[in-house]
């Protein structure tokens, strides 16, 4: 491994952050710096410490300009206060349609990178179908937790782990304290937390920073025998620091992108005619 260049700083000149950033350039490419030598490693150590401080600040709720976010698509990212779905935070997804919600979650898990956990009383994601959203089964770990307490414990443990990119917890109801705990765990570990809930009850208050409702719309098929690409109704019901909004989105399976056709204000929830 090539040694990093020596610092162009002498002892009498104070170390400015911008020069430091410039010095860091070539080796600050997502790879973790290695500690090999005491003098040569100062930039690496400083970068690590800066990362750490940034994470701590996020955990304390301080706004962070370089917050690390996950992009869905350009129009939706613009509507979100931090320019995308925040990692290191908890998001709530209300499943109006089970298939569409699972697909949306698969998309988020896939874009979060690293290992993804799917925790629930009876986890039934099916990788052959999720593969089209970019979720590789090698990255997916399933945990069955029949008791809600076990599920919460597993989700919290997984979110605290720095190797985990995303954790999906499928649960009926989650009280505020539990959601707050998950939020803190996500802030510690840096992974994104998803809470997948059915949409059949009145969604109470939440500690999650966004709440989505995922419904379906007739697809883009042209004929009776052609389903075409799936179309979803994505409703951002609440976002901390943002405004509620709704989108009509199409998943373009060919290019693996999410396209937004129409932006509207969120409509009151239409109850499904269940009988």
């Amino acid at each position: 491994m090539a040694k990093p260049p020596p610092l162009p700083v002498s002892a009498d000149r104070p170390l400015a952050t911008d020069t430091l950033d410039a010095t860091l350039g070539p080796q600050h490419d997502g790879q973790a710096p290695e500690l090999t030598d005491s003098v040569m490693d100062r930039p690496a150590v400083l970068a690590a410490l800066k990362n750490r401080i940034a994470r701590l600040e996020r955990a304390n709720g301080l706004p962070d300009a370089r917050a690390d976010v996950l992009s869905l698509c350009a129009q939706i990212d613009m509507a979100l206060p931090s320019g995308g779905l925040d990692r290191a935070a908890l998001h709530e997804v209300l499943a109006e349609a089970p298939g569409a919600a699972a697909a949306f979650c698969a998309l988020v898990l896939a874009r979060a990178g690293r290992t993804a956990f799917w925790i629930g009383p009876d986890p039934d994601p099916w990788p052959p179908g999720m593969a089209q959203f970019g979720l590789d089964p090698a990255r997916l770990v399933l945990v069955r937790a029949r008791k809600p307490a076990d599920a919460l414990w597993a989700a919290e443990e997984a979110l605290r782990c720095p190797a985990v990119g995303a954790v999906l917890l499928s649960a009926r109801q989650l009280d505020l304290t539990a959601a707050r705990r998950l939020m803190l765990a996500a802030a510690t570990g840096g992974g994104i937390g998803l809470l997948l809930r059915p949409d059949d009850d009145s969604p109470g208050p939440t500690a999650a920073i966004t709440r989505w409702r995922i419904g379906t719309l007739p697809g883009s098929g042209a004929a009776r025998h052609d389903l075409g690409d799936p179309r979803w109704r994505l409703t951002l019901l609440r976002a901390r620091g943002g405004r509620p909004q709704a989108w009509t989105a199409t998943w373009h399976a060919g290019s693996e992108t999410l396209g937004v056709e129409e932006e509207t204000a969120p409509q009151p929830h239409r109850r499904k005619a269940t009988g």
């Binding site: 973790a32 290695e34 500690l35 410490l49 720095p162 190797a163």
Partner: peptide, 13 residues
Amino acid sequence: GLAPGAAERREAL
């Protein structure tokens, strides 16, 4: 190390 690298992440997982 101070920052988590790939090996540490694997071990944490």
